[in-house]
Design a protein around this nucleic acid. Structure first.
Length: 428
RNA sequence: GGAGAGAUGGCCGAGCUGGUUGAAGGCGCCUGACUCGAAAUCAGGUGUGGGGGCAACUCCACCGGGGGUUCGAAUCCCUCUCUCUCCGCCA
């Protein structure tokens, strides 16, 4: 959430930021309500001050055994006034608050303006396709090997689910271990294993609610939701906390399954592992001082990239334009892995998304710290990124490491995690 | 699931027969004095958010969340959430 004060201090900046995202909202009306709220709030504060003074007097009079009827009567009418003012203020506050909960973060000034993914900017590439030409899509590779089964998954659960079997399941587990080990041992992340069900407050804190409820699975008979990403429970670890400055930056790595309705994606990626209702992900979350957060973002991306480098998977890093930016993000890098089996001759597909949310989530979730030498508290900046999406990594390995004979080589970095297995072959 | 107890400042912990209690006391932390230095001791300070003011400062709100009673609520009532104890059930 943005700071409401932007309405009176920098409405132009608000309008400009939203315009770059392709949004227009009635800022003047909101600003008017904020002015009115502030005005009434000043008035009611005065009434309350008077009431507090009178209360002390009444206490004195009663103590001295003197009559206080005159004051009592006077305060009775003041109480009425206070009540009605408070009511109006409360209404205005709710309106403004509700509006702000649905206003996205403002893009960082350096983010390119654009309306959709065509406006994104490629930042760098790494690696080259090892195969070239056309290759089988991962669902074919996986099904032929008998390590991924979509048909049985849909029997068990429905469309957009998959089952890993045998070496497929082992590969998935190996990737999770490999990623967590890399991030915790080499990059200093603290491993977290959070709840997979979270309450409303947590989802409001990171920005999924109130606006994107239709994307979430809600548990029947309760008020809990399945997490769409570990970003939710992990960032909310520190909701309503004031962190020690010395403990920043904090870095967490969490492996969790993620659950998404994919409500707006009817025709897209209907085959394969790319878009599932349930998928595994190793998520990275960093919490930093505001002045450090853009350095932290570069660090975060480099950590996610390192996974792909060690797996010998080619990729590129793309900076999202304003129109492609997520709700809570001020700046986002997507990492797109090369997938040899997609389309004609391969394609880059998103495998990680690394964002700096600046104070947007921190303000919603009230995560602060005490800056040394300054009075008071300040909101931290929160960052998150996939490090990486496991299902898509499996898919990328199947497509990029497939051989003519249908087998799939195991990337070197993964072999120890696979019990020494160097390739996945069909069981005979 | 049944019965009971409780949620107060960074922590522990009073207050809960409604009226200088933003909140005693202790611990912790910060500053000063003492000391070559430290410990100990002594003195002072030490919540968050919002409004006004250049500032000193001042006003308002906040004692788990929400609502109510009252001139006035940490204190009374309702409700929700969470925690603890005992019983039952269970990975």
């Amino acid at each position: 959430m943005l700071d409401v004060r932007i309405l009176r201090e920098a409405p132009d900046r608000l309008e400009e930021g939203l315009r770059r995202r392709g949004l227009t909202i009635d800022i003047a009306s909101l600003a008017g309500r904020e002015r009115r709220r502030r005005d009434l709030s000043g008035q009611v504060d005065e009434f309350k001050a008077r009431r507090n003074r009178a209360s002390a007097e009444i206490a004195q009079l009663k103590k001295a055994g003197q009559p206080a009827e005159a004051l009592l009567g006077e305060m009775k009418s003041a109480a009425e006034r206070i009540r009605s003012l408070d009511e109006e203020i409360g209404g205005l506050e709710r309106e403004i608050w509700d509006a702000f909960l649905t206003i996205p973060n403002l893009p960082h000034p350096g983010v390119p303006t654009g309306s959709d993914e065509r406006g994104n900017r490629e930042v760098r590439r790494f690696g080259e396709s090892r195969l070239g030409g056309t290759a089988r899509p991962h669902w074919e590779v996986g099904e032929r090997l008998g390590i991924v089964d979509f048909e049985r998954a849909s029997k068990i659960a429905g469309a957009r689910f998959s089952v890993f079997i045998g070496a497929g399941a082992r590969l998935e587990r190996a990737l999770i271990d490999f990623m967590l080990d890399l991030h915790t041992r080499e990059f200093g992340y603290t491993e977290v294993s959070p709840p997979l069900l979270v309450n409303r407050e947590s989802l409001v804190g990171t920005g999924q609610l109130p606006k994107f409820e239709e994307e979430l699975f809600k548990v029947e008979g309760g008020s809990l939701f399945l997490i769409p990403t570990a970003e939710v429970p992990v960032t909310n670890l520190h909701r309503d906390e004031i962190l020690d400055e010395g403990s920043l930056p904090r870095a967490y790595a969490a492996y969790t399954p993620c659950f998404r309705r994919e409500a707006g994606a009817y025709g897209r990626d209907t085959r394969g592992l790319i878009r599932q209702h349930q998928f595994d992900k190793v998520e990275l979350v960093r919490i930093s001082r505001p002045e450090e957060s853009y350095n932290e973002l570069e660090r975060l991306v480099s950590h996610a990239e390192e996974v792909l480098k060690r797996l010998d998977l080619p990729y590129r890093v793309v900076e999202l334009c304003t129109g492609d930016l997520g709700f809570s993000a001020a700046k986002t890098y997507d990492i797109e892995v090369w997938m040899q089996g997609q389309g004609e001759g391969g394609a880059y597909r998103e495998i990680s998304s690394c964002s700096n949310c600046e104070a947007f989530q921190a303000r919603r979730a009230s995560i602060r710290y005490r800056p040394a030498g300054k009075k008071g508290t300040e909101f931290v900046h929160t960052l998150n990124g996939s490090g990486l999406a496991v299902g898509r990594t499996v898919a990328a390995i199947l497509e990029n490491f497939q051989s003519e004979d249908g087998s799939v080589a195991v990337p070197k970095a993964l072999r120890d995690y696979m019990g020494g297995m160097d390739s996945i072959r069909k069981k005979t």
